[in-house]
Amino acid sequence: CFNYQSRCIGKNQKPYYNYEDLARLAQGTRFTVNEVEALYVLFKRLSSSIIDDGLIHKEELQLALFQTPNGENFFLDRVFDLFDEKSKGVIDFDEFVHTLSIFHPYAPLEEKIDYAFKLYDIRKTGFIEREELKQMVKAMLMESDMNLSDDLLEAIVDKTIADADKDKDGKISKEDWKVFVSRNPSILKNMTLAYLKDIACIFPSFIFKSDLDELVKTKELQDI
């Protein structure tokens, strides 16, 4: 094995995380080591669903979220960008754990507000602009086969910008966003995943299938 971005590469050329790596990740997030280990099992399943290289490709994220690896999806691109912190076009385990940590029920509200802003700042200009907002509402309406007249759509977008844009520059800045979200906390509902609170207990199969567990079982069999 040799060092690659602080990760070891196993003989099958896939990045390999040992106990110390999992403990390091737990220390930097809201997860316990057991929970990071459960996430590692989940990650290995997701990252081998199409291309078994120890990294999650966009198609694999799409398969997990939408049950199909094909077709364009506006929301997929936004979610993938959120995970792909190093902009390498793939998601490694560090990025997976770090981003999911933001969705932890115990993550600070400020972090959730920041990440929600990133999600909506499509062009990465540091602002949520009117056209971006309209594009997202349109994508949501298309996804759910809902019809809304153009006039009504324009009116809702205009009203939202007017409500949020306190400095009256026609777009939503980070400061505008913080104030707006504090008045409309329901906007952040998708930024919390209750599953993450106790992932190791909710998904015990992850633990039973884990490498550590296999090691223990093997040892027990040897002892018998």
Partner: peptide, 25 residues
Amino acid sequence: SNLNAFDIISYSSGFDLSGLFEETD
């Protein structure tokens, strides 16, 4: 109406990551 554009977007299943935790064959 008090409905804002972000409330509409938040109804999208596309921003819901719970699918990651569902067991698939």
